[in-house]
Simulated scan of single mutants.
Amino acid sequence: MILDVHTHYVPRGWPDLGWPGAPRLRVDSEREAMILVDSREFRKIQDNCWSADVRLAEMAADGVDAQVVSPTPVFFGYERPAEQAVRVAKIFNDLALEICTDDRLIPFCQVPLQDPDLACAELDRCLEQGHRGVEIGNHVGDRDLDDDGVVQFLQHCAATGTPVFVHPWDMESSPRLNRWMAQWLVGMPAETHLSILSMILGGVFDRVPPSLKVCFAHGGGSFAFWLGRFENAWHRRNDLVGVSEFPPSHYLDRFSVDSVVFDERALRLLVDTMGEERVMLGSDYPYPLGESPVGGLIRSAAFLSDEARARILGGNAAVFLGKK
C-alpha cells in the first residue's frame, strides 16, 4: 500500500469570519481560488485542494493508494484569542469530513494549540467524528513544542493513541527572507529543525511516553544534516546544551520524518540517520513545492532495498496510523 502522510486541503466552503486579519478564500472560478490574508494574496489554489474526485484521480495517476489530508497551516489561528481559534478549528475540521468521505482520504484535524484544555477537547470531538490524527504547527508565537501547555496536549495525544504531524508555519519575515521564497527555502527547514531540538533539549521526549507517535514534515528540515553538530555541542558544551537526560542521538527512535527532500543524496542521509523504519512517504500535495509524481524519489532511489522501499512507501505510515 502506497500511503502519503503529508498533504493539505482548503475547503471551498470556507466562510468569511469577519475578523481583521483572518484568512479568507476568494473563489475565482469552479477550479481556482485565492487565499487572502489581510486582503493580501497569499496563495493561489486549485480544485485539488477541495475536490475529493480530483484528489483521487491524481492519486491514482501517481499510484498512491491513500493520503493523510491535513489542514493548510495559514488557517491554524494560533495568533487569535482561543475562543476564536476554537471556532476556526471546528469549522475547518467539520468541512474536512465532507471532503474525506472516501476511505482513501484520511482526515487529520487542527486544534487551538494556544489553549491546551480546548485543544484536547477539540481533538476528542474530532476523533469521535472520524478524524484519524492531528496536525499542529511547530510553535505558538514564541512558545516552542516544549511549552508546558503543548506538552500537556502531546501527553493527551499519547494517551489517546493519536498520531501527530508537525508542520512548520509562521516563519520570520525580514528583508533578507522576503525574496526568492527564502521563508520557505530557508525558514521552513530551520523551523522544523528548531522544533525537533525543542522536543529533545526541552525534555519533551523525557516527559511524554514512548507511545507518542509524532512525524515532522519536510524530512525533519535540516536536522539530519546537523545532528553531528548537535551531538558534539551536547558533549562539549554540556553546561549549556546538556539539558536532556540523554544525548540527542538517543531520541532518534522517538519520532519520524516524511520524505519530502527531492534528492536521492538527501534521502540516503535521512534513511542513514533516522533508520528506514522512521521515514514515511510525504509529498506536500497539492502545493507547488510538493513532490510530483508523488513517491518518485523513493521508487527510483537505487540505494534502497525492496523491503526498505516498501516500508517507506507505506508500511511505516500504516504503523503510524494504527493500520498495522
Rank of each mutant, 00 (worst) to 15 (best):
T162P: 04
I2K: 09
M181N: 10
E32Y: 13
F205Y: 07
F92G: 04
V204M: 11
D284Q: 12
D142G: 04
R31E: 15
I45E: 09
H235K: 01
A302Q: 15
G295A: 06
D38P: 04
P209T: 15
A190I: 12
E291Q: 12
A57V: 11
A190S: 08
P15F: 00
F255T: 13
V68L: 07
L240Q: 00
S51H: 04
M181I: 07
P175H: 02
H235N: 02
E41R: 15
C157F: 10
R132Q: 11
L97H: 13
T72E: 10
P23Y: 07
F246N: 13
P107C: 06
K324F: 01
V10F: 06
T192W: 10
V260F: 06
E135P: 08
G314W: 00
F216G: 05
F42C: 01
G275Y: 12
W14K: 01
P112S: 03
L3V: 11
L267R: 02
I45T: 12
M188S: 15
D103A: 15
R278C: 09
M181E: 05
A318I: 02
V257L: 01
T160Y: 04
S222M: 04
G282H: 09
A159D: 13
P175D: 00
H156D: 03
P15M: 01
V186N: 05
D124G: 07
E245F: 02
V294R: 15
P293S: 13
P288W: 10
E98N: 14
M188L: 14
V204Q: 05
G13Q: 09
M280Q: 04
R176N: 12
V64N: 03
P210V: 04
L95P: 08
S173T: 12
G219M: 11
L17V: 11
I91F: 11
A119Y: 06
Y251F: 09
R26D: 14
